[in-house]
Design a binder for these strands. Structure first.
Length: 864
RNA sequence: GCGGACGUGGCGAAAUGGUAGACGCAAGGGACUUAAAAUCCCUUGGGAGAAAUCCCGUGCCGGUUCGAGUCCGGCCGUCCGCACCA
C-alpha cells in the first residue's frame, strides 16, 4: 500500500529527497578531481541506452554501484563515479520511421528525461563527466582511434560470410547472434557474402584467454564463458596427398586439421566443407556435386536450420592417400557439417571415435575401424556408439599399445619428420565485424576512391559528422541515399570519391567509454595522465547478459588502445560484479491480453482478477520484467509514491545481489516501514539521546554495555559484508541492530549515551543505502555537517569480543544444552561445565564419556 | 551432447565443518482506538507432550568426521552458457 495522507507518514520522502539532492548538487559534493591525494577508486555501472525511462534493472544496478561509491568515499577514497549514455542504435531509427521524429531529437529528449529520473534516485554521480556516445565530441575520438587501429594493423576490410539480420537490415558479429537469431531483432539470421570492416580481435586470442586468469575479482562464470567463447584448441595440421588422377585439376594435396591424430589409422573418409576450394573445383566438373553444394548453401541461410540439419555428404570421386600407407586410399566427400572457417575446412573422418563421423559413416555405410580400446583390449570393437574416451591404441601399426596422449605425440613427430604435419592452435574466436548498414551510429572515417582504394580520412578532418537532413522513407541505409553526404574528394588524390556509408557497431561506442570518463573533455580520446591515474576501473557492475559481448570487446579495445598509445593498462575492469535481474509474475486476461500489475487485484480468497472487468486472470510464472509481457513496475511511480530510499533499500534487501530479485509490493512496504521506523527512532526517541559529544559515563549498565557491543559488532559485520557485495546480509544486520536498540531498557545506566553513540553509527551505516533519510537523520542528531562527508565508523576491537561466550554442548553430535563460560577459559572449565548440564547427564544415560571434543569458545561434544 | 551454477519453512533468504532457519515477507492471536490506519506485543519447520523435553528435518542414496546445509562419490530436478568447433 502506497503511503498517503491517511497514513502516519512522519518522514516525507518526496520533499526531503529533492532537498538533499539539491544540496549535494549545489555543494558539488560528488564532483571528482583528478589530483586528489587520497587513494583513487573508480566504480562504474554499465551505462544505459537512453530509452527515455529507467527500468527496475537500472534501479538495482545503479543502487548497488552507488552503495559501493558512497561506501568507498566514506572509507576515505577519491571516488570516480560517472554516468553517460550509450546513445547510438536502432531504436532511434525505428522511432524516426514510426513517429517521424529525428533520431537525434528523439535521443536527446530521452537523455534529458532519463537523466531526471536517474537524478531522482539520489546517486552520487559526477554529472560533470557525462558523455553521450552519439555526440560528435565523443565519436570524433572513436574515429581517431579507428584510424590509429587501422595504421597499427588492427583493422581489416575483407570479404567474408557474414550474419545478415533481415529485420534490422544490417550485418551482425558472431557474438551478436544468439540461437541463430539477431540479438536485438530476434529475427532468424541469414548468411551472406559481403565485404565488411573487422577489428582483428583474433590477434589477441591468446592474450585474451591467458589474461582471464589474472581477473581474480571477476565471477568465475563469466571467465568461463569467455574462455569457451575464445575456444582454444590444440591440434595438428596434416597434409594428405591426393591421387592426382582423381583430382579435378590434378591437385596433389589436401590439408586438414585434427585434434585426434592418434586415430589416424581409423580414418575411413575425408570430408570437405561445401565452401572448400577443392569442392568448388570438383563441382565445376560435376553438375551433380554442384547441385549438392548449392543445396547445402541454400539450406544454410537460416542458422536454426543448420543446427537441426541431417548430416549429408557427396562423394567427389577424389581419393586421398593415407600418410602412413601409400596404398591406402580414402574417399573424399563434400559434407554439409564441415565449417569452412574453422581449421582448414577439411577433416579426416574416423567413425569409430567421433560422434559426427560415426553418424556420417553409418548413413553412407562406410566401414568402421576401432583403433582405441578402453582397456587396451585388442578385441574391443565399437558397436552402436563411437568410443570417445581414453584408452590404448590398437590396430594402428607403430602406435599399438600407446596411451591416447602418447600416440598423439608420436604421430605428430612422425608426420613432422615426413614433412606432412605441423602442430597448430586453432581458435573459435572470429574477428569482430563492426560494419553496420545503419544511419544512427558512428561513421567509419574512410573514403573509397577509384584510383587509391580505401583511404583514411585525415585526422584533421575529424569528426566525420552524421548529416542531420536524412529521410527514412525507404528501406536501407539513409547515409547511402543521402544526395550529397557521401560525395567527397579523395584525401589522397583529390579526385571525386565516396564516403564509407557503414557506421560502427554500437558495441564499439561502449568499448571505451569507461576510459573517456577519466578525461571527458580532453582533446585526445584519453588524456594519458588521467587514464594512468584512474584506470583500471576498480569495480564494474552490470548485467551478466554482457558476459561475452561488451566485456570481451572492451578487453580487446584496452589492448588496441595500449598498442596505439591511447592507454597503458592490461585489463579494463579489475573487479566485476554481475547482478541478477528483476522479475515479476505476468498476468493475462480472459481475452488473452497481457495486463500490467496495476490492472489486476487480489480478492479475499487469494485469486487474481482484472480490476476493470472483475474477470479471473491467468497468473504466469515470474520472469524478467519486460515490456512485451507488461510484467513491469515503473521505478518513477515507486520513487514518486515511496521515495528513492525505499526503492533503493528494497533493491538491496532480501535477495543476494547476484541472484534474480522478485519484485513485490509487500517487500517495498517493508522497506518503507523500516525507513519510517528509523526516522521515528531518531526523532521520537523513547530514551532521550545524550547531548552531542557528551563524555562516556563512567559506568554502563550491563544492558547498555551489551547494546554498545552490538553496535560495534554491527560495524564490523556490515563493513565486511559491503566489501563482499552481500548487501542483503548487511541490511539484515542493520535491522537486527535497530531491533536490539529498541529493546534497550531506558532506565539502564548510560542508555542515553549509548543511544546517541548507536544512532550516530547506525545512520552512517545506512548512509550508502538510503542516503537521503540518512542525511535527514544526521541533521536531526544535531550535525551541521553533511553525512556524505563523514568517515566510515570504526569498530572498537575491544568491544567485538565478549567476556563470556555461549558454548553448545552436544552428546554424540546432538545438541543437549548450552553453557556460558568466560571467553578463552581452559578446556577443563568447558568440560566440567558441559558435564554438569542436567540434560547432558540424561542424554549420557549413565555412561562415561569416551572422548570429549572441545572447540574453544564454540562447542563441546561428548562422545559416549 | 559438452560445460557451469543452484536445490534450506507458506515465500525471499541467513549460517569461517561447530546451537539450521538470523533478517524480512505473509499468516494467526492480542493491545491501543468509537472505528480504522499507523504503531506495539505474542505465535509461526513437521510431529509427540500439560510441561520439562524428545523424535524427525537443508532434493535423493552413500561416504569422510567427535560433529555435515557446508567436504567427497553417485543419482534426480531446475536454471544458465556453448553447441555439427574436427
Amino acid at each position: 500500500m502506497p503511503p498517503d495522507s491517511s497514513k502516519n507518514e512522519r518522514y516525507n520522502a518526496r520533499a526531503a529527497e529533492a532537498r538533499w539532492q539539491q544540496t549535494w548538487d549545489e555543494r558539488g559534493i560528488f564532483a571528482t578531481k583528478n589530483d586528489d591525494p587520497r587513494p583513487k577508486y573508480y566504480v562504474l555501472e554499465m551505462f544505459p541506452y537512453p530509452s527515455g525511462r529507467i527500468h527496475m534493472g537500472h534501479v538495482r544496478n545503479y543502487t548497488m554501484g552507488d552503495v559501493v561509491a558512497r561506501f568507498k568515499r566514506a572509507m576515505g577514497m577519491n571516488v570516480l563515479h560517472p554516468m553517460g549514455w550509450d546513445a547510438f542504435g536502432m531504436p532511434a531509427e525505428n522511432a524516426a520511421i514510426d513517429r517521424k521524429v529525428h533520431p537525434k531529437a528523439w535521443t536527446y529528449d530521452n537523455i534529458a528525461a532519463m537523466k531526471k529520473q536517474l537524478q531522482s534516485m539520489g546517486l552520487s554521480l559526477d554529472w560533470a563527466r557525462e558523455v553521450a556516445t552519439c555526440d560528435p565530441s565523443y565519436y570524433k575520438h572513436q574515429q581517431k582511434m579507428f584510424l590509429d587501429f587501422l595504421k597499427a594493423g588492427l583493422v581489416e576490410r575483407k570479404q567474408s560470410k557474414v550474419n545478415w539480420d533481415p529485420v534490422d537490415h544490417t550485418v551482425l558479429a558472431n557474438e551478436q547472434v544468439i540461437d541463430g537469431r539477431g540479438w536485438r531483432s530476434g529475427a532468424e539470421v541469414e548468411q551472406r557474402d559481403l565485404t565488411q570492416w573487422f577489428f582483428k580481435i583474433s590477434d589477441y586470442s591468446e592474450d585474451l584467454l591467458k589474461a582471464l586468469e589474472t581477473l581474480e575479482r571477476w565471477p568465475e562464470k563469466v571467465r568461463l564463458m569467455q574462455k569457451n567463447w575464445i575456444g582454444r584448441s590444440e591440434g595438428l595440421l596434416v597434409r594428405f596427398m591426393l591421387d592426382t588422377a582423381t583430382a579435378p585439376n590434378n591437385e596433389s594435396e589436401l590439408e586438414i586439421f585434427t585434434t585426434r591424430p592418434d586415430t589416424l589409422f581409423g580414418a575411413k573418409f575425408m570430408a570437405l566443407s561445401p565452401d572448400h576450394p577443392l569442392a568448388t573445383a570438383a563441382a565445376a566438373k560435376n553438375p551433380k556435386l554442384a547441385a549438392f553444394i548449392a543445396e547445402c548453401k541454400k539450406m544454410g541461410t537460416a542458422q536454426a536450420e543448420i543446427d537441426t540439419a541431417e548430416k549429408l555428404g557427396f562423394d567427389t570421386g577424389i581419393r586421398a592417400i593415407h600418410p602412413f600407407d601409400a596404398s591406402w586410399k580414402l574417399p573424399v566427400y563434400v559434407a554439409n557439417f564441415i565449417l569452412m572457417d574453422y581449421g582448414t575446412g577439411a577433416i579426416f573422418g574416423c567413425p569409430a571415435h567421433d560422434q559426427r563421423d560415426f553418424d556420417f559413416a553409418t548413413k553412407y555405410a562406410l566401414p568402421i575401424r576401432t583403433v582405441v580400446a578402453p582397456d587396451g583390449d585388442a578385441s574391443f570393437k565399437v558397436g552402436a556408439e563411437p568410443y570417445v574416451g581414453p584408452g590404448r591404441i590398437v590396430n594402428s601399426g607403430f602406435l599399438d599399445g600407446l596411451e591416447v596422449e602418447e600416440a598423439k605425440k608420436k604421430v605428430g613427430a612422425r608426420l613432422k619428420a615426413d614433412g606432412n604435419g605441423e602442430s597448430t592452435t586453432i581458435w573459435r574466436l572470429r574477428d569482430w565485424l563492426i560494419s553496420r548498414q545503419r544511419y544512427w551510429g558512428c561513421p567509419i572515417p574512410i573514403v573509397h576512391c577509384d584510383s587509391c582504394g580505401t583511404v583514411p580520412v585525415k585526422a584533421a578532418d575529424l569528426p566525420v559528422k552524421l548529416p542531420d537532413d536524412v529521410s527514412f522513407d525507404r528501406p536501407g541505409n539513409p547515409l547511402d541515399h543521402h544526395p550529397t553526404w557521401k560525395h567527397v574528394g579523395c584525401p589522397k588524390c583529390g579526385k571525386p570519391a565516396r564516403r564509407e556509408t557503414d557506421t560502427c557497431d554500437t558495441f564499439v561506442d561502449s568499448s571505451w567509454y569507461f576510459a573517456r570518463f577519466c578525461s571527458p573533455r580532453a582533446a585526445e580520446p584519453v588524456a594519458r595522465e588521467a587514464g594512468d591515474y584512474w584506470l583500471p576501473v576498480d569495480q564494474y557492475v552490470g548485467g551478466v547478459e554482457h558476459a561475452i559481448l561488451h566485456l570481451l570487446y572492451s578487453r580487446f579495445f584496452t589492448r588496441a588502445m595500449r598498442k596505439t598509445g591511447h592507454a597503458n593498462l592490461d585489463e579494463p575492469f579489475a573487479g566485476l560484479f554481475t547482478q541478477g535481474m528483476v522479475c515479476h509474475e505476468s498476468y493475462k486476461s480472459q481475452a488473452g491480453k497481457w495486463l500490467y500489475p496495476e490492472e489486476i487485484e487480489r480478492t479475499a480468497d487469494g485469486s487474481v482478477v482484472e480490476t476493470a472487468t472483475g474477470q479471473p486472470v491467468t497468473v504466469g510464472r515470474r520472469e524478467v520484467m519486460s515490456k512485451s509481457k507488461k510484467n513491469v513496475v515503473a521505478p518513477a511511480r515507486i520513487i514518486d509514491e515511496y521515495g528513492a530510499d525505499t526503492a533503493r533499500l528494497f533493491m538491496l534487501s532480501d535477495s543476494p545481489p547476484e541472484r534474480d530479485l522478485e519484485w513485490s509490493e509487500a517487500g517495498v512496504d517493508g522497506a518503507f516501514r523500516f525507513i519510517q521506523r528509523l526516522w521515528r527512532d531518531v526523532t521520537e526517541p523513547e530514551i532521550p539521546f545524550a547531548a552531542k559529544g557528551a563524555a562516556r559515563p563512567n559506568a554502563l549498565a550491563p544492558a547498555a554495555e551489551a547494546a554498545l557491543r552490538a553496535v560495534h559488532k554491527t560495524i564490523a559485520s556490515v563493513t565486511e559484508n559491503l566489501e563482499g557485495f552481500r548487501f542483503n546480509v548487511a541490511v539484515a544486520q542493520i535491522r537486527t541492530l535497530a531491533n536490539t536498540l529498541g529493546e534497550l531498557d531506558p532506565k539502564a545506566d548510560g542508555a542515553g549515551w549509548v543511544r546517541r553513540e548507536a544512532y550516530e553509527t547506525l545512520v552512517r551505516l545506512v548512509g550508502p543505502m538510503v542516503p537521503h533519510v540518512a542525511e535527514a537523520m544526521w541533521a536531526e542528531l544535531g550535525h551541521a555537517t553533511m553525512l556524505c562527508d563523514e568517515g566510515w565508523p570504526k569498530a572498537d576491537p575491544a568491544l567485538l569480543v565478549d567476556g563470556t561466550v555461549t558454548l553448545a554442548v552436544q552428546v554424540n553430535g546432538k545438541l543437549r544444552g548450552t553453557i556460558d563460560i568466560p571467553r578463552d577459559a581452559p578446556e577443563e572449565v568447558a568440560r566440567t561445565a558441559a558435564l554438569a548440564v542436567a540434560n547432558v547427564q540424561t542424554a549420557m544415560a549413565g555412561k562415561t564419556a569416551r572422548k570429549i571434543v572441545v572447540v574453544p569458545n564454540k562447542i563441546v561434544n561428548i562422545v559416549v
